[in-house]
């Protein structure tokens, strides 16, 4: 049973990673990162049930709190960029290069 959840988590993680690499809108890129975090949460919970221990489920709560904090920071940075450039495309980030 655990392996099915692991497979699902791996698929979710891959979707997130591919989206992170391919999408252009900073908001969508950020959503893909959140998807990767939630894939990890699924693994925590699945293994927690597999071993019959509580630590994995606790870890999922820690991750949720961290993800919430990350959303606060991330959205404010994205909003800041949007107000300056009227765009959130990561292709426009070309001031710094070389």
């Amino acid at each position: 049973m655990t392996s099915i959840y692991l497979l699902l988590a791996a698929i979710l993680f891959t979707i997130g990673l591919v989206g992170f690499l391919l999408r252009r809108n900073a908001l969508v890129v950020f959503m893909c990162v959140e998807l990767m975090l939630n894939a990890a949460n699924l693994v925590f919970v699945a293994f927690s049930t597999h071993y019959g221990i509580l630590t994995g489920q606790m870890a999922a709560f820690f991750v949720m709190v961290v993800a919430a904090a990350e959303v606060v920071i991330g959205l404010s940075i994205i909003v800041m960029i949007y107000r300056t450039r009227r765009s959130t495309s990561v292709d426009n980030l070309t001031v710094l290069k070389g």
């Binding site: 988590a9 990767m36 975090l37 990890a40 693994v43 699945a46 597999h50 870890a59 991330g74 980030l93």
Partner: peptide, 23 residues
């Protein structure tokens, strides 16, 4: 923004690794 997006992705990869090691 660059630091945030790349850093967040790196932490997500790190966390998935932690989940696998937990397993």
């Amino acid at each position: 923004l660059k630091y945030f997006l790349l850093g967040a992705a790196a932490s997500a990869i790190f966390l998935f690794g932690v989940a696998l090691l937990f397993g």
